[in-house]
């Protein structure tokens, strides 16, 4: 598997809706074969529009998309047979049986019947016991899993998950991510959208940030987390400090509130190891610097967007506009 081979290639893609709303402005993006790509962005940024164009639900205004070498317009059959879509909303055929609706999806996507495959998917998604149940009797979480089963019924090599964790409880979310990882292990390329940076951080190989129809960042997760995943710890000191002792220089600390507060900013990867904070606190104790209170905060995706949008995207993040 060549990690650099794009399985999806999006070039100069724009979308202006009939209402005049410019949903996408010249998107260029390559998705690599076998990766998990997370598309982050606030509501209305264009995430779903982008996915819907690739899947054939929305027609692009200009630009081209190819999926596994098939142009999505000229060779839509070839492209769509490779793609599975789990939309954001839970759209289901309420009166159908679970197994019937999944079998239907496989046929609709042009694949010969394969009950063994359907059984495998339903078992993996813990829906096999519910196979004879009417869809409307399922819980929300089961319906979400059913949507995934339908999307996987025709054995796609590309899977789109549009906000898969919206309205999903913690346990189900964990199961879902485990399944996504095992899909990736079997060679499926996964593109997901989310509001939550933690989720992207947990799952993705690469991350793209989209805002107001523009792709403002596309980076490897590790590099992006370093840039975006800032955390901050504030110590309320017992005694105000005039200046930071030289032995604390390694941490890049900052004094605020007339020397009453000590600020330590660190990235999320350092937070995961915990070494930065632990060592700092140990050193403070050695120096006899006492503190009354301590709190940490993490930059939210909203903060990050505000920063990204404010920033001169070209110079600060090194990306194409």
């Amino acid at each position: 598997m060549n990690p650099m081979t794009p399985i999806i290639s999006i070039a100069n893609l724009t979308k202006t809706y009939a209402s005049g709303q410019e949903a996408l402005k010249a998107i260029n993006l390559d998705i690599r074969k076998g990766e998990i790509f997370a598309l982050l962005g606030p509501n209305g940024a264009g995430k779903t529009t982008l996915i819907n164009i690739v899947c054939g639900i929305v027609t692009a205004s200009t630009g081209t998309v190819s999926a596994d070498g098939h142009d999505i317009v000229r060779d839509y059959r070839g492209a769509r047979m490779k793609i599975g879509l789990v939309p954001q909303e839970l759209h289901t055929d309420a009166f159908e049986k679970v197994i019937a609706t999944v079998t239907f999806s496989r046929g609709l996507f042009g694949r010969a019947p394969n009950p063994a495959h359907i059984e495998k998917i339903l078992r993996e998604l813990s829906l096999w016991d519910k196979r004879e149940a009417k869809v409307r009797t399922l819980s929300g979480g089961m319906k979400r899993r059913l949507m995934i089963a339908k999307a996987l019924a025709h054995e796609p090599s590309i899977l789109f998950l549009d906000e898969p964790s919206a309205g999903v409880d913690v346990e189900l979310r964990r199961d879902m991510w485990a399944m996504v990882r095992s899909l990736r292990a079997s060679g499926v390329t996964i593109i997901l959208t989310t509001h939550y940076i933690e989720e992207a951080e947990d799952m993705a190989d690469r991350i793209g940030v989209i805002n107001k129809g523009e792709l403002i960042v596309v980076e490897e997760k590790a590099a992006l987390m370093k840039k975006l995943g800032k955390k901050e710890m504030t110590l309320n000191l017992q005694e105000p400090m005039a200046e930071i002792p030289p032995s604390l220089a390694d941490w890049g600390l900052e004094l605020k509130a007339d020397g009453h507060e000590l600020h330590y900013a660190f990235d999320a990867s350092a937070a995961n190891t915990g070494g930065g904070i632990a060592l700092l606190l140990k050193r403070l104790a050695e120096l006899g610097i006492g503190f009354k209170d301590l709190h940490t905060s993490q930059s939210s995706l909203e903060d990050i967007f505000v920063n990204l949008v404010r920033a001169d995207a070209d110079s600060q993040w090194g990306v194409r506009k």
């Binding site: 899947c55 054939g56 639900i57 839509y76 059959r77 070839g78 492209a79 769509r80 047979m81 793609i83 879509l85 939309p87 909303e89 759209h91 289901t92 055929d93 309420a94 999806s105 609709l108 996507f109 042009g110 339908k150």
Partner: peptide, 14 residues
């Protein structure tokens, strides 16, 4: 009406 049309539109059917 119920939204399941997404599947039809994204399927390889002419």
């Amino acid at each position: 009406f119920v939204g399941t049309i997404y599947e039809l539109l994204s399927a390889p059917v002419s």
